[in-house]
Design a protein around this nucleic acid. Structure first.
Lengths: 236, 236
DNA sequence: ACAAAAGTGTTCTCCATACACCCATGT
DNA sequence: ACATGGGTGTATGGAGAACACTTTTGT
């Protein structure tokens, strides 16, 4: 006896996941896109995606898709929402759960030949409702970045403050004052200065920092919630 | 030729919607629950829900479910996310999109005999993953209420400030200072004093206000984004 | 010496918070 | 007259925003 029989009269759908995978490189916020090599819409640009299988939940499906396309297991990932317009996919009755992921682009090891990192603001039109998904993901990323230090997921373990500021400017879409940025981020007490300098972008060299995740978690546990970038919940 | 044939090899699922419907009454934040009258888990408490049909998207399915259970068409409603744990529903392979809705409980006209408005903090255990959905919905509602005036969706067109404050205290889970609350809410310039008073809770009577949606929309369009309850995005 | 990026402090303004008393009226 | 809930203003502190100059060093 199949356990689906209680609802046998209901309509069947395929369930997909589509991943909006963000990276940061060369001062640009980028998106992993693939040229579809199967119908429908073969040859067009698309998010990376796949279908939900019997023995996994959506999170696991998204992780699998990410692994298949990037070779990476552990990245920051979170579900956005389900997309379900009628006929959204001309290939069939498909409801798709969109996920957004943040990864260090340097961890990417070219697994798939037709996948490309593309600056978000120069992305080509995407198939189906994928442009809507990207828009949604950008909004969600901004909100997350306002509340939690998720930005570090887009950077290597070590980075300089100018680079970190560049990243946040790209995420939020506006320029920030250097002094205010540094005051704020350093006041949070979650960065460690390695004492080393990176001279790749200036003669003087910029100090290299790392994100102290342990300190951050302790801080959270002790009930203090640092407010990133002008979002205050004022201690509740 | 069926248009699903491109993905014929993929697994089929049923797709459901489950609605977390909030109301506010007698000083309590309430939730519309139903006692399930069909298997599996008949007799247990559940969110209101239904299955996605061929010719509708999830938003429409959620609206249909809401209409069937409450008799109401237009309420504030928004998708939370999809829930998909393996075996989350013992009745079949079902992925469910959770929606949360805010409505004026007085608009409710008893459509379904086994539906009940239950104070959120006194709700019985629910079937499947519905408790998780409720938890998620509460979080989302708090965040929304911090940024937009969604709270008014839970009240009649006319209300007093003491009632409004009660509502926000219930939403956020802590008590607020009367003077600060009024200063803030009145400073937003989105309430209209009708000049009339409600004497049902005091001898003095409390002024009756209404929410000026037009003024609020104008304000949004003019680029000013009022920050509710201590959440500031500082003008970006 | 100079160009180019890194680094550093102070002032102002606004908003959240804390806090206590008078008002109106039905009984 | 008094009990009950409705209504009001002020002082303080903290955080974001605006703003300009010095430092380092490779060329």
């Amino acid at each position: 006896m199949n356990n689906t029989n209680f609802y046998a009269a209901e309509q069947d759908f395929k369930v997909a996941v589509d991943c909006i995978i963000f990276g940061f490189d060369a001062g640009d916020l980028k998106l992993l896109l693939v040229k579809r090599d199967f119908p429908p819409c073969a040859g067009e640009w698309s998010l990376v995606g796949g279908f939900l299988r019997l023995d996994e939940n959506l999170d696991q499906a998204a992780e699998r898709v990410l692994r298949d396309y990037t070779g990476i297991e552990k990245v920051y990932m979170e579900q956005l929402m389900a997309f379900s317009e009628v006929n959204r996919d001309p290939g069939g009755l498909v409801v798709s759960a969109a996920y957004f992921a943040l990864m260090d682009i340097r961890d990417y090891n070219h697994q798939v030949q037709n996948a490309v990192w593309c600056p978000v603001d120069k992305a080509p039109p995407l198939i189906f409702d994928h442009d809507r998904m990207v828009k949604k993901a950008l909004g969600r990323m901004r909100r997350r970045a306002s509340n939690c230090p998720v930005g570090f997921n887009l950077l290597p373990d070590e980075f300089t403050l100018p680079v970190l500021q560049q990243l946040y400017e790209k995420i939020f879409g506006f320029e920030m004052d250097k002094r205010n940025f540094r005051k704020k981020i350093q006041g949070m007490n979650i960065l460690v200065n390695t004492g080393r300098k990176d001279h790749s972008t200036s003669k003087k060299g910029a100090f290299i920092y790392s994100f102290d995740e342990k300190k951050y978690k302790e801080m959270l546990e002790s009930g203090y919630n640092p407010n990133f970038f002008s979002i205050n919940y004022n201690g509740r």
